[in-house]
Amino acid sequence: MSEVRLTLRQAPSVALEAPCVRPDAFATLSEAAIARLPVEHGREVVALGEFFDVRGEHADQVRVEGDVRRVKRLGAGMIGGSLIVAGSAGRHTGAGMSGGSLVVEGDADDWTGLGMRGGRLVVHGNAAAAFCGAAPGSSRGMTGGLAFVRGSVGVRVGERLRRGVIAVGGSAGAYAGAHMVAGTLVVRGALGPGAGIGLKRGSIVAGGALELLPTFRYACRYRPGYVDLLFASLERHGFDVGAMAAGAFDRFGGDHADLGRGEILKWTAS
């Protein structure tokens, strides 16, 4: 069998903590062993099989079906393989993942991809707060990998981003790219207030409306060569850059309240 399929059989009555659902871990486990993996349903530790029908074994291709919006930490820490959540996923999906491919075919909840270190994360719907954000106290958020959201993202996407690329097809909530250390955040739609606050280094590419903070300074209008390289790479991964494929960018350097070596590239049609 080439796939492990988990089908939610019984809806959890409170949040279910399921960080054991990792394709790299399933690769070496039998069906029975997967079903025995512990999950926390509230204060009870129960077997994964209590909630999910498990079909398949010894495979690092995993598909999760059913309404798992209450199931947290799917794919958290995964280092390889493929995990597909057929609907919407719960909080902390893919948090700390360092490799492999994770696809959420519905919406993703808060802290999806938190502190992501590598691999590829794709959300077909919208992602809620702190997408690819930073764990409390950590000086770094995402440190590597690629993350795509076809829809929109909530507040604080890419906070303290250190390395890697985040691309958002819709709009972004407040404080997009807050305290970024490096890396690239692309948002095709509008950005909420406070975008790029505390930006040290790194680039925010803004396709839609954006109210700039006063501590960014206009530099020039141009079309940087690396943007086309970046977009080509995004397109290869199936991310549509839309109108940004043409036109120019206004470059604003900042945030001068902080180190100020970052940039916001604001798209303009002309």
Binding site: L212, L213, F216, F252, G260
Partner: peptide, 18 residues
């Protein structure tokens, strides 16, 4: 708050952005 901090760092703030 950001403008205050930029000033405290000895940076200027562009009127266009202010």
């Amino acid at each position: 708050l950001l403008a205050l901090r930029a000033f405290a760092r000895g940076r200027r703030v562009d009127a266009a952005q202010a």
